[in-house]
Design a protein around this nucleic acid. Sequence first.
DNA 1: CCCAATCATTGGTACTCACCAAGGAATGTG
DNA 2: CACATTCCTTGGTGAGTACCAATGATTGGG
Lengths: 153, 153
Amino acid sequence: MTEVPQLPPSLLGITAFLLAKVGLAGRRRMGERLRGHGIGLWDLAVLAALADFGPASQRELGERLGIDQSDLVAVMDVLVPLELVERTRDAADRRRYRVAVTPAGRATLAAATTEATGVRDEVLSALDEQERALLHALVRKAYAGLDPRAREG
Amino acid sequence: MTEVPQLPPSLLGITAFLLAKVGLAGRRRMGERLRGHGIGLWDLAVLAALADFGPASQRELGERLGIDQSDLVAVMDVLVPLELVERTRDAADRRRYRVAVTPAGRATLAAATTEATGVRDEVLSALDEQERALLHALVRKAYAGLDPRAREG
DNA sequence: CCCAATCATTGGTACTCACCAAGGAATGTG
DNA sequence: CACATTCCTTGGTGAGTACCAATGATTGGG
């Protein structure tokens, strides 16, 4: 789908439909902007996790973010060469890595956060500041309550 | 991604991230439920368009819903055998079809709308009635303002 | 009547998301 | 020490989304 003209009112009454549309638009735009920084959406999530919670092994990252181990490898293949994270073998247990965000990684995270603001303003251009804040709060609350054990994002 | 535990606060501050997550969850669940009716998300959109706006050619449907012609063929391959739509050659112009929703199609649309309510209540379980209505209104407004000519849903 | 345009169909590409199985390296436990 | 387990990697699957090009049938304009 790639919306354009007048949609059927029947669809516009479906909250899930609207959320999917707006969510998709946000994800697309965010992805485009991040591409300018050489990273993808997952990479951003990993940077955020490392910045917020400190160094971790890949397994820990995967668990925390709900990313499959194998998919995490691809993330590392992006972040390591860009030197946004530093990956060293854990001295105590040389099976595992110790992944840590670098200053460059923090800078990229900050830049991405700024981009996110731009995306928000773009996607929610029809809403005023107050409405945007309200929407954010509502979606955050809804997300927090989203059955964590169910296996859909 | 298949969220679970505590996400980085950095991510939770990003509206686009939250919208994408919640939107994805809604889309998934909606897809699952529709599968029980033998149809997919696109099929529902087509049924809604036909019910709301009356019979149309496939080209008209594609334009209205932003679906590629070729993808619309797949939709018809679902809806026609299920007799949810009736497809007859246009007498005046036998190149085009005249696609119309059948009574069975309307019934399925009604059922799907009910399912949508269930999905909404599921995804927004953390919100009370008032908050759900507010969220719906905000998202609808945002969607309506979403640059219609930009080509991302 | 011939040509260009339109409508539908077929078949193919590319990208994302989520997942799974197999295997190598390193670990610790009995 | 031998064995089961853990961590990471490789390689592959399948569903969903969004495209594009080529073709056949039919049409209307010149």
